[in-house]
Computed example of a mutant assay.
Amino acid sequence: MQRALIRRPSPRLAEGLVTHIERQPVDVELAVRQWHGYVDALHAAGWTTVEVPPVDECPDGVFVEDTMVVYGDVAVIARAGADERRAEAPAAAETVAAQGYRVVPITAPGTLDGGDVLKLGSTIYVGQGGRTNAAGIEQLRAALSTADVRPVPVRKVLHLKSAVTALPDGTVIGYEPLVDDPGAFERFRAVPEEAGAHVVLLDDERLLMAASAPRSAELFVSLGYTPVVVDISEFEKLEGCVTCLSVRLRG
């Protein structure tokens, strides 16, 4: 059974942090509808969702991926690089523990955001930059001792997975102007749009992705994949993408 943790948007969503882009007005009611559309897409693909209790006082709480890294039977609970986001973690930790995961916390002086972590089999790339520091990466390496944890630089975007994700065959995809070091990845393929760099693997064929990357969707079709497109425009205004809105659990 494939499961995903989700968390509904805060009424204060429009106050979310913005670091690398200019702030734009966010339509919170539209964002809620888009969130439901995202969840519906997971359900339609056969995923079961588990809702993390909301944290209405945290504008960025909907970006639940940042609260943890799951690998095997371990959930490493993040210590957010932004102080304002640290209150998001406790309820997420309780929820993933209830799903049977062993919880290991990142502690000071380490910082780690889940959005900085790209898992490819036993290789884990971790973006080191504004939100995740060297101490956090070392703690992640200790917690996931069977994995090959590889730091990579992140300076141009908020998180590593703001720049790159990966296809089912292990090819890392990214919008090259925003990727600090494409050579850090064994196989890299450029996509034509920023939002095209973000995919959630629903299975070996279907890719959940944003409606704002139609040319990238065409590329994926040519590679034999089936895009499942959702509109997440309001979350993109807050540097969010399709990966940010869930924590995918397997088995």
Rank of each mutant, 00 (worst) to 15 (best):
I137M: 11
A98L: 13
D83T: 12
V104D: 05
D169F: 02
A89M: 14
G129N: 10
K161P: 05
P90S: 10
V104H: 10
V117F: 03
S162E: 01
Q34F: 03
D60Q: 03
V64K: 05
A78Y: 01
A82H: 14
V157H: 11
A143L: 08
T49L: 11
E84H: 11
V117E: 00
A163F: 04
P105K: 12
V117Y: 02
I77M: 15
V117D: 00
I137V: 13
I77S: 14
R150S: 00
Y125M: 05
P59A: 04
A44Q: 11
A163T: 02
K119C: 05
V70Q: 01
E176L: 11
R141Q: 12
V62I: 03
R131S: 08
V39C: 07
V62T: 06
V149L: 08
V103K: 05
R102Y: 02
D113F: 00
L144G: 06
K161T: 08
V104T: 07
V50W: 14
E176M: 11
Y101P: 03
P105Y: 08
K156C: 01
V76Q: 04
A108H: 14
I124L: 05
D60S: 02
T123W: 09
G129T: 06
V149G: 04
A93R: 14
E51A: 15
D66R: 00
G46D: 07
P182Y: 03
S122R: 15
V152W: 07
I137N: 08
R150A: 00
E84N: 09
P90R: 14
P59M: 07
W47K: 13
N133R: 03
K119F: 00
G37H: 12
P177T: 01
N133T: 06
P109K: 10
G114S: 00
P54Y: 05
Y175I: 08
E57A: 14
I137L: 10
V69S: 00
A75T: 06
P53M: 07
P109C: 05
A147M: 09
L144C: 06
A80I: 06
A87M: 14
A163V: 04
E138S: 13
G46Q: 12
Y71V: 15
W47T: 11
S122H: 13
P90K: 15
G115F: 00
A45M: 09
L42T: 00
E84K: 11
K156V: 06
R86N: 06
L158N: 01
A44L: 05
A135N: 14
A93G: 11
G136Y: 07
P53A: 03
V172E: 06
Q34H: 06
A166I: 12
G115C: 04
V154K: 03
G136C: 08
R131M: 05
L120Y: 09
P168M: 07
V126M: 04
D180C: 03
V52S: 04
A143I: 11
A45Y: 13
R141I: 05
A166P: 12
R102E: 09
A147D: 09
E94P: 11
T146F: 07
V39L: 00
E84D: 13
A82K: 13
A41C: 06
V157F: 10
L140K: 02
D169W: 04
L158K: 07
M68F: 09
L118Q: 03
E84Q: 15
T49Y: 13
L140N: 01
G115N: 04
T171H: 08
